[in-house]
């Protein structure tokens, strides 16, 4: 993403937002999702600052919602 940290997207659900992001930046897909298309559990997702404990692709979004990804991973 060329170190771009914020993007504006029009979408009604989390899944639709991800699809748009992946269309713009195809390399994001394998980072965000596993082979089955689900969001990797390693990503902690926040909507307007509140953590979504079990994020689902059909999580609804409304105008001006802000979705954040916190990816805290480490080696062994």
């Amino acid at each position: 993403m060329n170190y771009q940290r914020t993007v504006q997207i029009d979408a009604e659900t989390l899944g639709a937002a991800l699809e748009q992001l992946e269309r713009r930046h195809p390399q994001m897909k394998s980072i965000l999702r596993d082979d089955s298309g689900q969001i990797r559990r390693a990503h902690q997702i926040f909507v307007n600052g509140e953590q979504v404990r079990k994020p689902a692709l059909d999580t609804p979004l409304k105008e001006t919602d802000r979705v954040e990804f916190l990816t805290a991973i480490a080696g062994g």
């Binding site: 993007v7 979408a11 919602d65 990816t71 991973i73």
Partner: peptide
């Protein structure tokens, strides 16, 4: 405030989305 999410210093790690419902 903007958040840096990359760990392992991976340049393609996601940042933050702002989602808008279509008008």
């Amino acid at each position: 405030i903007r958040h840096d999410t990359p760990v392992q210093r991976h340049p393609a790690t996601p940042g933050e989305l702002s989602a808008h419902r279509p008008d």
